[in-house]
Nucleic acid binder design. Structure first.
Lengths: 251, 251
DNA sequence: CCGACTTTGTGCATGCGTTCACAAGCGGTA
DNA sequence: TACCGCTTGTGAACGCATGCACAAAGTCGG
């Protein structure tokens, strides 16, 4: 399940003038970077910068200059050879491609520590994502405003989501509740979900899920710590094939 | 800056018995999945499951079975053909590879909404990551315990990090403070950083940074919403090359 | 002890993403 | 107007990751 991509039918249209077709072809990784470029560019615009070269922008975004140019080429050719890019122009084109010309109503489910933090972000960093609904199972929380929005009961999720045209659902519940909440969001017509619960969600093919997993992030860092320690050990001690694992702490 | 990989010297050692050399070869993407497998396996162990096949485990983890076996092959051959994997054995081997046999002391910098949430996670999901230090600039917060740990002032970051042997630093400050905090963490000897601030951090090559960027995640979802809307429009209306962007809401 | 069945481990092909390198194109200058 | 230098945009090569398909290796039943 979850094959993500649509089937064949790629070479059916002979010539594409619209960038709608283009959008389909942008690699996921490039989309993530476009969002970063957008933030950097917005910061530059705020400081009165009007033009920027791929070299400058790529350094500020922490990527290779060639990669940046290729990423921008996915959304069209909006630079001037010999000069660079107009900041304003680039900003508005990236916003258009990312769909930020339209507001996306966000619902946060699970008003614990994390849910509070998310609700209080207030329209999410980089605006365009107004939080319009909060949900929790706890009756005591219902009606209490968090970040300006009163908490609704989770049983009302379908009605409220439809009414407020929620397009993105954020799951910040404990792990056991996550799948159930997800199912309810999906049946309420939400097609994009951001999941903070450490659970692998099962969803229909037409729903997009992105996962933010603190534990996984920490463990990836842990892996690098261990790798470093091992390398240091094998350099200073030499390759005896045993190393620091001699003092294993069994879990 | 930030070339990530070490230089050549790969084929210098003729035969490698140690899995230290193996660790270096594990693809980053596979490491992330190993962490997921570990969580699923831990859950199974808690439910008394003792053996599992690659098919079952891969379904629970939401990945392809072949990919799972390849991932596991990176850390060695610990399955039994015709039977499957012993859950306990697999858990302990993944923990060893990820460096979870040792505790990693965590410091959280920036005790705002998010910092509070992180501190209250209490040792982070999936244990092994005790939060041992909290920092903030706000004098009023200093000394107040959050999640059982009293907040220290950020000026004491070097001393406290060294004393408590912090190996992972978590940045949950406002964007403008992030780079400065990062620099201080690095000079305190912290080599792994988890960054929640929407800023591209500049670090020396020996420091590993992972980024969790809410805005980027939202914008990626936004992109998919837009793509869907476009596809729906082009199916129902036809390819007129204009579509929903007719009603642009300028930011 | 042997044969049939099951599941792992992996060589190989495929596809995606990154990087290189250079031609095309534009502004400035004489 | 014609040339020069600079920067973009992209074709092509490379490398990594994914998925397939099968041999190797083990268990179980007779």
């Amino acid at each position: 399940m979850a094959s993500q991509r649509g089937e064949g039918e790629t070479t059916t249209t002979p010539a594409e003038p619209a960038d709608r077709e283009r959008a389909r072809a942008i690699p996921e990784a490039a989309v993530a970077r476009l969002a970063v470029y957008l933030r950097v560019l917005s910061g530059m615009a705020d400081q009165g910068v009007t033009a920027v070269s791929s070299e400058e922008l790529s350094q500020a975004a922490g990527v290779n200059a060639a990669k940046l140019r290729k990423d921008l080429s996915y959304i069209g050719s909006y630079g001037t050879r010999g000069v660079g890019y107009d900041v304003e122009v680039l900003v508005s084109h990236i916003e258009r491609i990312l769909g930020l010309t339209r507001n996306h109503s966000v619902a946060v489910v699970g008003i614990g520590n994390l849910g509070h933090a998310l609700a209080n972000y207030g329209g999410f960093p980089g605006r365009g994502f107004p939080v319009t609904a909060l949900f929790d199972v706890d009756e005591d929380l219902v009606g209490i405003p968090v970040g300006g929005i009163p908490v609704s009961h989770i049983d009302d999720i379908t009605a409220v989501c439809l009414e407020r045209e929620v397009s993105i659902g954020v799951i910040a519940t404990p792990p056991p509740a996550a799948q159930s909440v997800c199912d309810r969001l999906v049946s309420a017509g939400v097609q994009c979900i951001l999941n903070f619960a450490p659970v692998v969600l099962q969803v229909p093919d037409n729903v997009e899920v992105r996962k933010v997993d603190l534990a996984v992030e920490m463990q990836i860092l842990s892996f690098h710590v261990a790798r470093r320690a091992d390398e240091a050990a094998s350099v200073s001690v030499g390759n005896n094939g045993l190393g620091v694992d001699g003092m294993v702490i069994r879990p």
